[in-house]
Nucleic acid binder design. Structure first.
Lengths: 246, 246
DNA sequence: CTCTACTGTTTATGTCATACACACAATGGT
DNA sequence: ACCATTGTGTGTATGACATAAACAGTAGAG
């Protein structure tokens, strides 16, 4: 025993290995053969543009290839498969992390800026979050994490606490995305619909109904992460103060 | 003008309307015709079981139908399409919300319990979060929100603040999911792999590397949401205290 | 100059969601 | 008791998709 069920496990491990290779490997360019007509970067960028404008559902190998006037199968000369292409999209769309050290005032305004920039990215690319959730973190994603941890490092927290705190901020931003749908998206106003569904079922949702009557889900909150962000930073602040009370 | 691009918009609106109908509509059972051999509930449950054991990728109409020994197309007598089936899976898997009023000690332990229960659900059903992200909230999901808002209502915050605070907690839990992979899943240990990738590139990630050396990403943190949860609750506490300082 | 590694293409396969039309069943109004 | 209506499960068909396999041309290395 110990070698049961090899098919499933090996397959998963191979998939993971391929993702790691694509995300972290350094391809040495071949010298033989014809010059490539595309490049991984241009393919990934085309796929990102497509996802941004027409949604992730429109991103098929055929569609991306046709964006270059090439055949579907030509893409497989650059990328092992669709899943790895999405891996690259996810990591690439983040771009390089911001330079938080340029922001004065210590960790708090820096982390706040980081949160706002992250939110901007989530809103600009609505497909990012659901895809990223089930995927390996790529080099750029880790770079963003790095720069947040570095910003908070001056607080003197332990490594575990640093990371935990950054994840709190990141988690908060993530949770606000569904409620902060970008205004240009005339999304049949899901928010309004949600409010109507709740108030139509007021007996079932008394606390929510009265919260709504009291201003919850108001448009002012929609595109504003400030309230919760300051609460989250307060929590971290409180902890830092309790560790070094003098 | 004003009626341009009708195709896209109408389609989206119809899709949304169908989701709302499936999630919130009360089907009145027909009296004519043969007795149904399945039921929406049993179909949804079978799909959930499938997703839990073999992953969301295994959930196809054919596979779900074959679970009952029926043909693919028979499912369409019960559910308009696959997307709506997933809508139902997402809302159904949550089950009924807990009774937080049974927990003594005020809003803080209640909200903490809510967070832990939410985390349990996310870990038991890894497919839930990515699917839920892009979908309409269903009645049960709103019930969970309701019960958290109700738990915090005693704090005297405004409706907007109540909702914002609950979303902070929810967001934190969501963000911890990727790092708290359930132990029974021998996931080729993505966490270990991640650590290795970071430390292998230490010059690029100095702050993370030293945080790891200092204990970050340690197994003890993996299945533990307590540190961050208490920080988040501290932040809310601080705000509540500042509103009613006496 | 020719071998070889590489590029883009053609063709084929299997899976999937889903439209459509059929055969049969139960029921309610007659 | 009949039969039109309304459902149910099925068989067949279509079109999108990912991806495997084999092939034809191309350009640098020896």
């Amino acid at each position: 025993m110990g070698a049961e069920m090899p098919g499933k496990k090996d397959e998963a491990a191979e998939t993971l290995a391929r993702s790691v290779e694509v995300l972290w490997g350094h391809p040495d360019r071949p010298t033989r053969g014809p010059k490539p007509g595309m490049s991984v970067d241009r393919i990934v960028q085309a796929a990102i543009d497509l996802a941004d404008t027409e949604g992730m559902a429109a991103v098929s190998m055929q569609r991306v290839a046709s964006e270059f006037g090439f055949t579907t199968m030509s893409l497989y000369r650059y990328v092992p498969g669709k899943s790895e292409l999405i891996d690259l999209m996810v990591d690439s769309v983040l771009g390089d992390p911001p330079d938080l050290t340029a922001i004065p005032g210590g960790w708090r305004p820096r982390l706040a800026a980081w949160a706002r920039l992250t939110m901007d990215c989530f809103l600009r690319h609505p497909w990012f979050l659901p895809e990223a959730l089930q995927r390996m973190m790529g080099p750029r994603q880790i770079s963003w994490l790095e720069c947040a941890v570095a910003a908070l490092a001056e607080s003197g927290l332990t490594g575990e606490e640093l990371l935990g705190s950054v994840l709190i901020v990141n988690g908060y931003v993530r949770s606000m995305v569904p409620f902060a749908t970008a205004p240009p998206t005339p999304d049949q106003d899901r928010g309004t619909l949600l409010i109507r569904l709740i108030t139509d079922n007021a007996p079932r949702y008394p606390a929510l109904t009265s919260a709504i009557a009291d201003g919850a889900f108001s448009p002012s909150q929609h595109d504003d992460i400030e309230f919760g962000l300051q609460r989250v930073l307060d929590g971290i602040q409180t902890y830092i103060d309790s560790r070094a009370p003098n």
